[in-house]
Nucleic acid binder design. Structure first.
Lengths: 151, 151
DNA sequence: GTATATTAAGTGCATATACTCCTATTGTTC
DNA sequence: GAACAATAGGAGTATATGCACTTAATATAC
């Protein structure tokens, strides 16, 4: 949406759609990060996923799903692309139903290259938005998600 | 990412990635809205796009791209699905390069059905998050995007 | 007025995302 | 320990998203 509503005085006012606003913000910010990591040949989402694996390895598909609030089947496909490029290795876990994901040396090296680009971008955004405002924003985002998951 | 960094005391601390956080939030919130409008047979993004058309018709593809911060080619495809289901009508503009998008009666009726569902969801989220907190969040999101576009 | 630049839009390709089934493995119950 | 439930994961299908490239129409320069 956005949609129109009526306020107490029956005067039309624009009401902001939570879904639209957040998706739009995600698009805009993703563009920035995508552009920055493009020289590496990957998208921000892929580097991100690699980073999550790095900090939680070994990790299962369901584990990654919980960490990223992403559907398992989405991760299956996203992981397959990283595996194809030998950035991660996927093996069967002790529980034979599970798959265990770890970074390869290639993956580690890619992350090492990505890190300074990422830091630069974070700094750039902090510089534009202001450290406190950005911090507040992300805090609010996380807080909001926590409340929603509780409910 | 998220990634790890070092703070002033060289103690490892998690640094929040703007891109990851916003995409995650968008995923979580989109799930909620998708679930709500599922009985209508459409996704939240489609209802959203329909709503943007409704409030700006007649509107060109590039116009919608600017309104939603979406790539033009993304809109070409998303609009095609709405056109297929006769929710919108796309005609050539006076400038023969442009395409003019308007809602059909079908589209108007679908939006009318979606509106109460959308309102209910907004209320639900307001109830969970708190009106002031949510308002602050969306304000911060918009403010942040504005600053980024200026830069 | 023609050559060139700009603008609006679309195609091919690739990735991101999630729902509905489906299979394989593990856990539970009796 | 066999029947059944629960869990981990994947395949098919569909939409969302954006980049590089292309085409068509308009605007501009001379």
């Amino acid at each position: 949406m956005p949609h129109q509503g009526l306020n107490k005085n029956n005067i039309q006012e624009k009401e902001v759609c939570v879904c639209f606003s957040l998706r739009k913000a995600a698009r805009v910010i993703t563009q920035i990060y995508d552009e920055v990591v493009r020289p590496l040949g990957y998208k921000a989402t892929q580097i991100t996923l690699l980073g999550v694996v790095n900090q939680n390895q070994p990790v299962t598909v369901t584990g990654l799903a919980a960490l990223t609030d992403t559907d398992r089947t989405t991760l299956t496909r996203n992981l397959k692309l990283l595996e194809r490029d030998q950035l991660i290795r996927i093996t069967r876990g002790q529980d034979r139903r599970q798959r265990s994901v770890v970074l390869t040396e290639n993956g580690r090296q890619l992350l090492a290259k990505a890190y300074p680009l990422w830091r630069e971008t974070q700094k750039r955004i902090i510089h534009i938005v202001g450290e406190k405002d950005l911090y507040d924003l992300l805090l609010k985002v996380n807080h909001t998600l926590e409340k929603i998951k509780e409910a």
